[in-house]
């Protein structure tokens, strides 16, 4: 009887906490498909806001994905070899470099953006192009890729695997391709998942770096909240959810499959 009481109260508490977190999301999504939010859901359900958002922000959404995957490509191309080199070399210099790569985690995005603006703001064409935002995102997401790949290296004794491949005659590039990357795959996947979602959701840095013509999803969201009906902004949130959740699930499944292998 007493156990049952404890279980019930725990269940109620859990549900309350969960609903505290979930209800705002549900309200926000439902607002996006309500004709008039102030009159409530009885005013009718519509997709007109979603359509409006799509009309206004399709370019922004597209650009967001372009930037996210370009960021992923760059962090993969630079971060994985960097993690390999840092792990194999070891020593104090490697740790200093690792610290420097990790630094953007601790520095506010605004400060990074400000530094980029001060340094490269005068290069007009670069400043106005989406590549400027890309640079910011790469700086911000690089530590996540490097760290998660290095974490895998630490668990599988990659140094000895590398040495044994070398003893069999493999050049550094062959070793990297045949042995290092395949065995670091779980870390690379975890890193990729983080890089893409962080890039899609990044606001601080992007807000400082964007121009009216180079906006990403979260910037567009802020824009619509600031200047349009609540229903439009909510519809925007809905689109954001629809875009990012399948991506998250797909990458999670991929990572799980890889872990089971």
């Amino acid at each position: 009887m007493r156990d049952r009481l404890i279980f019930t109260s725990q269940l109620i508490f859990t549900l309350l906490v969960a609903s505290f977190l979930v209800v705002p999301a549900i309200l926000s999504i439902s607002a996006g498909v309500t004709v008039n939010y102030f009159r409530g859901i009885q005013s009718g359900v519509t997709l007109q806001w979603v359509a409006q958002v799509w009309e206004l922000y399709a370019g922004t959404i597209l650009l967001s994905f372009v930037i996210a995957f370009a960021t992923l490509a760059l962090t993969l191309a630079v971060g994985v070899p960097a993690a390999y080199a840092l792990h194999i070399r070891g020593g104090r210099m490697s740790r200093v470099v690792e610290e420097i790569i990790t630094l953007p985690l601790a520095i506010p995005g605004l400060a990074i953006a400000l530094a980029l603006l001060l340094t490269y703001g005068d290069f007009g064409d670069f400043r106005r192009s989406w590549l400027f935002i890309l640079v910011g995102h790469v700086i911000f997401t690089m530590p996540f890729m490097v760290r998660s790949v290095m974490a895998v290296f630490a668990t599988i004794d990659i140094k000895t695997l590398d040495e044994s491949a070398a003893s069999l005659g493999a050049s550094p590039w062959r070793r990297f391709r045949d042995v290092i990357v395949p065995n670091a795959l779980p870390g690379i996947l975890a890193g990729s998942l983080m890089v893409v979602t962080l890039s899609l959701g990044e606001f601080n840095l992007t807000w400082m770096l964007h121009t009216p013509l180079t906006k990403t999803l979260p910037i567009g969201l802020a824009d619509s909240y600031a200047s349009m009906r609540l229903e439009v902004a909510s519809a925007y949130t809905l689109i954001f959810f629809v875009m990012i959740i399948p991506l998250l699930v797909a990458m999670q499944l991929f990572a799980e499959k890889e872990a089971k292998r």
Partner: peptide
């Protein structure tokens, strides 16, 4: 000469077999 061009066969204590 680096190890990859010495034509040596090496067995490591941990064996270092390629898990992939």
């Amino acid at each position: 000469v680096p190890i990859e061009r010495r034509n040596v066969g090496m067995v490591f204590q941990s064996y270092a077999l390629f898990p992939n």
